[in-house]
Design a protein around this nucleic acid. Structure first.
Lengths: 204, 204
DNA sequence: ACATTTGTCAACCGTTTGGTTAAACTAAAT
DNA sequence: ATTTAGTTTAACCAAACGGTTGACAAATGT
């Protein structure tokens, strides 16, 4: 079956490209290096993915689609705000501990090429916080949580979960701990982050 | 005076390099482009800063030294924890609104080259949170603030202040607002962030 | 069995890149 | 007036880069 053969090579390329692109970024990545890591000839990259740009886009889409479901969790689940925050923080941190280069890769390339976001937003699966906003506004009105704009709360949730990984090299320096200790700090954040947020917004 | 001449050219190069490096990153930056933006010949770059690597390091150091003072503010000031958090958030956000590419540049290059941090930590002006930690531990013991590890609190402060800028392209998409509205959200955060943190940790 | 498509590779190509060189220009110092 | 040191330029270079070509092998279809 041709699909078997081509599938293995094609996915070997994608895996290798993922590794290189995520670690080095689009500009610093080398086609030869990707080919070496995939254990194939450089021509194969162009055979399966015409150009560096297209290979990159395939990697980016694949990476982004791994994160989108996590976000829909917090936005569209039929649970209380507090549960959403707890579940998302725990799930997201567990996920990123397994894919440490992913968040930085996405953020980085989005900053490098802002028009890219427009393409993503246009796609159907792109998360939208309107439902979350509605829920927050409602709970504020009910006096369950402190007055806060849903947008600001959302930005806070994202910041507290994502930045500790993106800023890890810097934070490790400031806090002055080794890699192992820092990883333990991240483990602790699976519950720490939600507690911190809920303490801030919850009215007794 | 020859120093005048060289000074203007040298600083013109540094300014141009700053702009290009911060927007594109080390790998994607081109020496020719920097020369064009500085309005001089490409050879001048090598005349004043031997290599791309050295020019980059000069830019990075310059950028980093713009942020270090801000951090020492929160770490070593002789003020209450609450004041530190308020002052830092307000100052930092004001600063970054004027230099939007800076945080992303630093975080990005630090991720690309983790050994770089070690060099920075070794320098005398590199911030260290030991004093902040002492203060937090004390206030926890006194029952002024909720029990929290100083490291976690520090990571939270950094995250809430820095990430909204680094993750701006992504967050703009999620929150679904235009650039102007997003900037207003950032303005609001000058007080919003500190309120959010203090609400979380302060015991009435 | 034969023809056609698909997959793979080594060698090659044109361009771009960081970096060099040597000469020209400037202006202060002798 | 000549030297000297610093500054600037155009032309050049080797290496690295993304991408192409053509030959060949392995499947696949008829």
């Amino acid at each position: 079956m041709e699909t078997t053969k081509s599938n293995t090579t094609e996915s070997a390329i994608l895996d290798a490209a993922k590794g290189i692109f995520e670690r080095k970024g689009m500009a610093a990545a080398r086609m030869q290096e990707i080919a070496d890591e995939a254990g194939i000839n450089k021509s194969m990259l162009h055979y399966y993915y015409r150009s560096k740009q297209l290979l990159f886009e395939a990697v980016f889409k694949s990476a982004f689609s791994m994160l989108a479901p996590q976000l829909n969790e917090i936005i569209n689940a039929d649970t209380s705000i507090f549960e959403k925050i707890s579940n998302f923080s725990s799930n997201y941190i567990s996920f990123v501990l397994k894919h440490p280069y992913l968040p930085n890769f996405i953020i980085q390339e989005l900053n490098r090429n802002p028009d890219f976001v427009k393409k993503l937003v246009a796609e159907k699966n792109f998360p939208n916080i309107s439902k979350f906003k509605q829920q927050v506004d409602e709970k504020v009105k009910e006096g369950v949580i402190r007055p806060i704009k849903a947008e600001q709360l959302f930005v806070n949730i994202m910041s507290l979960n994502i930045f500790p990984f993106i800023g890890a090299p810097l934070l490790k320096g400031f806090v002055n701990v080794n890699d192992e200790t820092y990883k333990q700090l991240m483990e602790d954040r699976k519950t720490e982050v939600a507690d911190f947020i809920i303490n801030s917004i919850k009215l007794k």
